[in-house]
């Protein structure tokens, strides 16, 4: 069995008395593209930064390739590419200078790849960073994270300022990176449709807890909306396990459930004497249902 790229065990983080992350356990294996979802303040950035060793855990552990994140050795750091939420570009430099200085800090650097991507993404490298728009700066941040061919790419809200064309180009680049199944990508985004397009796993954070984690297909199969149609008045409390949200109106009811399967529908139909229509949800709807 191959070693997990990232392994978090019962990870917790608090600032003074404020608990930000609680009992997070997760694995990232090679070939994974993990989308991290959560409302503002759910703990996405904190989780990603702790995983990369920027911040010590308050409880539990987190390791990259078996090394504790807080004391990552040089060789492991060289295998990570990171795009932070707030860019770390030097305003007085031009894009070319910024890339060159960044390259100077890495053992290997694929300038050819960067030049190609810069051209494809139309990044004006000859202008000073301070003169660039938010989207252009974000493109440069992404370029900086790709130049050394990282085995783990962590992107914290990389799509926020990109236009639709740039987003498409960027997402196809992500798929290219993970095509050989030796690398992994973790990225958080609020643009759920984009995340759905490329992620094969999803982590949903809610108030510092991992509300759901697993393969995207499994998530979409297990979280559904059920439309119940009965002959008589339905009870206010339907007693359905894993209910996210329910609305009962006379002899009809709409219920969102997690952990759904055919058996659930069959037992429900026989217990309540209703007809059930199952509506699959897309990721955005699932996210909204989970946060109702």
């Amino acid at each position: 069995m191959t070693e997990a790229i990232l392994a978090a065990r019962n990870l917790g983080k608090s600032f003074d008395s404020r608990q930000v992350l609680n009992d997070i356990s997760a694995n990232v294996d090679a070939g994974s593209v993990i989308g991290v979802l959560g409302k503002n303040g759910a703990g996405k950035t904190t989780l990603l930064e702790i995983a990369l060793g920027f911040s010590p855990v308050s409880s539990g552990s987190v390791a990259l390739w078996g090394h504790e994140s807080l004391t990552l050795p040089s060789a492991i750091k060289g295998r990570i590419g990171y795009v932070p939420q707030q860019d770390e570009l030097v305003p007085v430099l031009t894009g070319t200078q910024q890339i060159a200085l960044n390259a100077a800090l890495h053992k290997s650097w694929d300038q050819e790849l960067i030049a190609r991507l810069a051209q494809e993404w139309e990044v004006p490298l000859d202008r000073r960073i301070s003169e660039l728009s938010g989207g252009e700066r974000q493109k440069i941040s992404v370029l900086l994270a790709l130049g050394h061919h990282p085995d783990l790419l962590v992107l914290d809200e990389p799509l926020a300022s990109l236009d639709p064309i740039a987003r498409r180009q960027f997402l196809s680049q992500l798929l290219e990176i993970t095509a050989d199944q030796t690398r992994a990508v973790i990225f958080s985004s609020h643009i759920v449709s984009d995340l759905e397009r490329v992620a094969n796993e999803v982590w949903i954070l809610r108030q510092g807890h991992m509300a759901w984690q697993g393969e995207l297909d499994v998530l979409k199969e297990s979280v559904v909306r059920l439309h119940l149609q009965g002959r008589d008045q339905l009870p206010e409390q339907l007693g359905i396990a894993h209910t996210l949200h329910q609305q009962v109106d006379g002899n009809t009811a709409t219920i969102s459930v997690s952990d759904w399967n055919e058996d659930v529908s069959q037992s429900l139909a026989s217990r309540l004497g209703v007809e059930i229509e199952v509506e699959p949800l897309d990721l955005e709807e699932i996210f909204l249902e989970m946060h109702r």
């Binding site: 770390e88 030097v90 305003p91 007085v92 430099l93 200078q97 910024q98 060159a100 200085l101 960044n102 390259a103 100077a104 800090l105």
Partner: peptide
Amino acid sequence: RTSQPNAVRAFLFGDP
């Protein structure tokens, strides 16, 4: 100039 000390200074002081 593209050198490691310059890169370090650029990140630490915003000026290489």
